[in-house]
């Protein structure tokens, strides 16, 4: 979409910090989340279609440069100003800003998530009072940033909706919890932990919520199969479908 990150002029935005489990630095190019080969989605078996050589990179929309349009600039200005007042460097906290399909997304560096959320909630010009929960997304192809947590914040005062996106590498799946700022995120974070294995640091009781307590694995990750999982409880076993007794 755009070439230059609006916040990265002058001082470099994020220092390359990977190596110690911190997300890899961002650039302004579209975010690559994977590579698709062939035409029809088949991954194994011989190629009879002739399209097998086709290689396409899948990218999500990249950073947008100013002006964002509408009230987006106002929110971005206010947020950056409020962060500066607290003695933070906005470029460090906000990795990039994406405007896509009429929606404003701030990609937040995870160390700053709680402070950014608190600012968004408390600043009179921002006032995002309502958090509509967190949605986990797993991008196995986005190396170093596999797990994303997406928050949608709604301001009833100003009638606005923005999105915060935080990412964590699979090797270090930690994101700070927002329960202290938005208590409503209690169950939402438990759900995201249950399905994606994202550990929300500071959550009062991060346990499984949907799956049984002794369930193994995180079922909504991309590498988890859809079905066919053998289950055992009270000593009774339900084998995977391919191992079940068959009736004629």
């Amino acid at each position: 979409m755009s070439e230059k990150h609006p916040n990265s002029e002058g001082a470099p935005g994020g220092e390359p910090l990977n190596g110690n489990g911190v997300p890899a630095p961002r650039d302004t190019s579209p975010e690559v989340i994977g590579v698709r080969r062939g035409m029809f989605g088949a991954e194994n078996g011989g190629d009879t279609s002739g399209y097998g050589g086709l290689v396409r990179t899948i990218t999500l929309p990249g950073a947008t440069s100013r002006p964002y349009g509408g009230w987006f600039d106002e929110v971005a200005d206010e947020l950056e100003g409020a962060l500066e007042e607290q003695g933070l460097v906005p470029e460090n906290a906000i990795e990039k800003t994406v405007v896509d399909r009429g929606e404003l997304t701030f990609h937040i560096s995870r160390e700053y998530l709680v402070r950014v959320a608190r600012t968004l909630r408390d600043d009179p010009a921002l006032r995002f009072e309502l958090c509509t929960g967190v949605s986990g997304v797993h991008f196995p192809g986005d190396k170093g940033r596999e797990l994303h947590a997406v928050y949608h914040l709604r301001s009833i005062t100003h009638n606005r909706l923005i999105r915060l996106e935080v990412s964590a590498p699979d090797a270090d799946p930690h994101v700070p919890s927002l329960v202290a700022v938005y208590p409503t995120n209690d169950w939402h974070e438990r759900e995201t932990y249950d399905f994606f294995g994202l550990i929300f640091d500071g959550h009062p009781a991060l346990t499984r919520i949907m799956m049984p307590d002794d369930w193994q694995g995180f079922p909504q990750r991309k590498d988890y199969p859809l079905g066919g999982i053998p289950v055992e409880y009270k000593g009774a076993q339900i084998p995977a479908p391919d191992q079940r007794r068959s009736y004629s």
Binding site: M211, P219, L226, I238, P241
Partner: peptide, 13 residues
Amino acid sequence: FNNYAIVQGVDHV
């Protein structure tokens, strides 16, 4: 719902 969460037929139980 042929997936991880649902018992594939209550006759297993």
